[in-house]
Design a protein around this nucleic acid. Structure first.
Length: 270
DNA sequence: ATCCAGGAGCTTT
DNA sequence: AAAGCTCATGGA
């Protein structure tokens, strides 16, 4: 274990960590502390001069986590030309989309259904403390085989409510082995339908998993906030399927980033 | 008290 | 395919 401080890809920690795509980053004395898998890291500095303090052996993991190979400057330059998004791009410079561990995103967004962000964070923290591995710097997210062996009441006791059954059943499938890499390359509709086979995963949660775990930039999660903003965006009331279709036409391969900008702007208007 | 939260599953039209 | 009802929970 040798901790090092290295520069990491330019991004805005404040905006990215508060954008509702991750639930396990907390700020302590000017440093953002987070755990993914069994890895701990601290993020310091401000956009565009950002540094990471982590175990040297984990640095490749974190480089991938912070999506180092994707050109957000180029994507934002495209989106800023859309007059409905330009202000959000300006107000949220340095936003990126994280590439988090598949199982953690899968379970976290099952918990997110019909829920709010502070409570989602609270629940995830509780199940991590109770069922995750203890590390030197906090508790890891629970492993699939651990959650798979729980009873519904165990998770209900941590506030998961009616989602407890979904978490156990989904964890059983993952713990038996699941090749999620295929979801990165197959057509969006197919990938979404595959994920919807998991109990507790619908189209919205499926799109979140495709973006925040698998790095797909063409997905477009339609939640209550995006529903609200679509009226202004497209000029009429639409079903969720129509919203996804229109968004795909308008934003194409930048749909996920457009959605994230719109979500932030609508949820926390300046 | 009533409504809402990064919805989804199930049943009924 | 589309609409309606229900599912826990805590905060506003």
């Amino acid at each position: 274990m040798s901790f090092i401080i290295k520069s990491i890809r330019p991004f805005n920690p404040e905006i990215t960590f508060n954008s509702g795509q991750c639930f396990r980053w907390e700020k302590q004395d000017n440093a953002w502390q987070g755990i993914a898998e069994n890895n701990y890291a601290e993020i310091i500095g401000t956009y565009p001069n950002v540094y990471i303090n982590c175990d040297e052996a984990d640095y490749p993991f974190w480089k991938n986590y912070f999506d180092s190979s994707y050109d957000y400057e180029a994507a934002s330059a495209v989106l800023i030309q859309d007059n409905k998004i330009s202000q959000a791009v300006i107000n949220n410079k340095g936003l990126i989309l994280l590439r988090q561990p598949f199982f953690e995103v899968l379970i976290s967004f099952i918990i997110s259904a019909n829920n709010n962000i502070p409570r989602i964070k609270s629940i995830i923290n509780k199940i991590s403390v109770k069922y995750g591995d203890k590390t030197n710097n906090g508790y890891a997210f629970p492993k699939p085989d651990v959650l798979a062996q729980l009873k519904e009441v165990d998770l209900s006791a941590q506030g998961c409510g009616y989602r407890s059954r979904y978490i156990v059943e989904t964890s059983k499938i993952i713990s038996k082995g699941y090749f999620y890499e295929k979801l990165i390359t197959i057509p969006l509709e197919n990938a979404r339908n595959e994920l919807c086979k998991f109990m507790g995963v619908g189209k919205k949660v499926a799109d979140c998993i495709l973006i925040y775990a698998l790095g797909r930039k063409d997905a477009y999660p339609v939640d209550t906030w995006i529903r609200k903003v679509s009226l202004d965006l497209f000029g009429k009331e639409m079903t969720d399927d129509e919203i996804r279709k229109k968004a795909a036409e308008r934003f194409g391969r930048d749909a996920a980033l457009a959605q994230q900008y719109l979500f932030i702007a609508k949820r926390e208007p300046l």
